[in-house]
Every structure is written in C-alpha cells, then in structure tokens.
Computed example of a mutant assay.
Amino acid sequence: MPRANRHHLPGHVWHVTHRCHKQEFLLKFARDRRLWRYWLYQARQRYGLCVLNYIVTSNHVHLLVRDGGGGEIARSMQLIAGRVGQSYNRRKARKGAVWEDRYHATAVQTGAHLARCLVYIDLNMVRAGVVKHPSEWEASGYREIQAPPDRYRVIDEQALLDTLEIGSVAELRECHRLWVEEALASDRASRDEWWTTAVAVGDRSYVDEVHRALGVRSPGRHVEQTGDTAWVRDDGASYGVDQRF
C-alpha cells in the first residue's frame, strides 16, 4: 500500500480513517467487518498497536490509536488492509483494489477533545440512519467499552483512561454512556468535518504546537476555530463528505 497522506508525531493520539476503493460497499457483510476486527486484534498482538476506539462500516473504517513511536500504526494498517483485501478478493474471485491507496490521520488532543472524537466515531452508523443507537452495531468499540468480551479484546482500557484523564473503568463506562446519550439528544450527533479532514484537532495551543511540529510539511495551512475547537485543515485530504455508511 503506497504511503498515505499522514504525519507521524510520536506520543499523539490519531484518528485514522480508511475507506473502500471508490467508496464501494465492500464491507456490507458482517463476516468482512468481523474479519477486519480480527486483524485489528492481530495488529495489537504483533505490533503493540494501542487502540482506543474503532468502528467498521459498510464502506470505511474509523480507528482511534495512540502512537508509541515505533511505526506500529503504519505496519498495522498495512497488515489489516492487506489481509482483509486478500480474503475478500479470494472469496469473491475478483482482482483489484479493495481499499483506497491512502488512509487519513488526524492528531487529536487528549482530554475533552478526545472524548468528542470518541463519540463522533461511536455515532457513525447513527448518522447514517442505519441504527438508532451505537450499541446496535456489532463491529464497534462502543460495545467493547461498555461490555468487554472475555477474549480477543482490542481496546486498551488503561490507555483510554489515561488519555481521557479518568480514574476507573466504571467511571469510564458511565461517562462514555452519558456522552453518547447527550450527543444523541443534541446536534452533536451531526457530522463535524474536521475529524476526518484536519491534520490536528484540539484547543488553539495544541493545534499551534502540532502545526509548528509539522513545519515545512504543512505549507499554506492555517488554523481555523469554532468555539473551543481549533483545527488545521489538511489540503491533501481525499475524503469527501459522504463517509457515513
């Protein structure tokens, strides 16, 4: 898979989005979404990928990860995309790309902005009108956070506690549930484009810090702000507005 339009700043949390080739619904069957999650689990086992949240939709995926600085994000995305694509093509007796050649990554500030991103991911299929509540969608981190499976867990609970600045798993689950319920009852369930088109999202000081760290790699980009949320738009982001399904 060719190098994606993404940036590596170790220690940061990244919201990664990757869509199917030509936005086709190649993940419309549950078996393919489960396979993607299986290889996500394998990526955690093999490379130490630190997973904070995820959702697999019918034509794209969202993944929230913390970068440990060892190149594990790139290696994990290559592993997952490669194995899922091979399996799909073999089963369908088809040739050709299953994924877009590039995934997009947005740096997300820890704390309150990370909580908003977490909920944004959770509500993906609600925004699409497929389900009324994220608990109804199997291939999602929401279900794993609220009711962890006995085996094959992919979400790192301790890392999630640390990045959200929460003291216990019980508190995490209650806060997470309330954040989602509040979003469902307000316009925060709507799509905010910066989560999938920006280089970085957070408060102004955080975004300025990331912008400076990128240096010459972010020419012509300017910080924008809505309320307490600032972001730097990624001019090279290939994701359009229709990522909902």
Results as ranks from 00 to 15, higher is better:
Gly48Glu: 10
Tyr54Arg: 06
Trp99Asp: 03
Asp242Arg: 10
Trp179Gln: 06
Ala147Leu: 08
Leu52His: 02
Ile73Trp: 03
Asp162Cys: 03
Glu174Ile: 05
Gly167Ala: 12
Ile55Asn: 05
Val210Phe: 02
Gln146Glu: 13
Thr17Gly: 01
Trp99Ala: 01
Ser190Thr: 10
Thr196Ala: 08
Thr17Trp: 02
Gly129Leu: 05
Arg33Trp: 03
Gly69Glu: 01
Trp195Ser: 07
Asp235Gln: 12
Trp14Tyr: 15
His15Ser: 03
Gln225Val: 13
Cys20Trp: 03
Thr196His: 12
Leu164Pro: 04
Glu136Met: 09
Arg191Met: 09
Glu193Ile: 11
Trp99Ser: 05
Thr163Gly: 00
Glu171Asp: 11
Ile121Met: 00
His8Asp: 13
Cys117Pro: 01
Arg37Gly: 12
Leu160Gly: 02
Gln225Leu: 09
Asn59Tyr: 05
Leu118Val: 03
Ala105Arg: 01
Asn5Met: 07
Asp122Thr: 00
Trp231Tyr: 15
His113Tyr: 11
Ile166Pro: 00
Leu26Gly: 09
Ser238Cys: 06
His113Gly: 02
Asp228Glu: 11
Arg233Pro: 10
Cys20Thr: 03
His133Ser: 07
Gly236Asn: 13
Glu182Asn: 13
Asp162Gln: 12
Leu40Gly: 02
Lys132Gln: 14
Ala200Asn: 01
Tyr47Phe: 15
Gly48Asn: 07
Arg6Lys: 02
Thr106Tyr: 09
Glu100Gln: 14
Val232His: 08
Cys175Pro: 04
Ala237Trp: 02
Ala43Tyr: 09
Leu118His: 02
Glu182Arg: 14
Asn53Trp: 00
Val126Trp: 05
Asp208Leu: 12
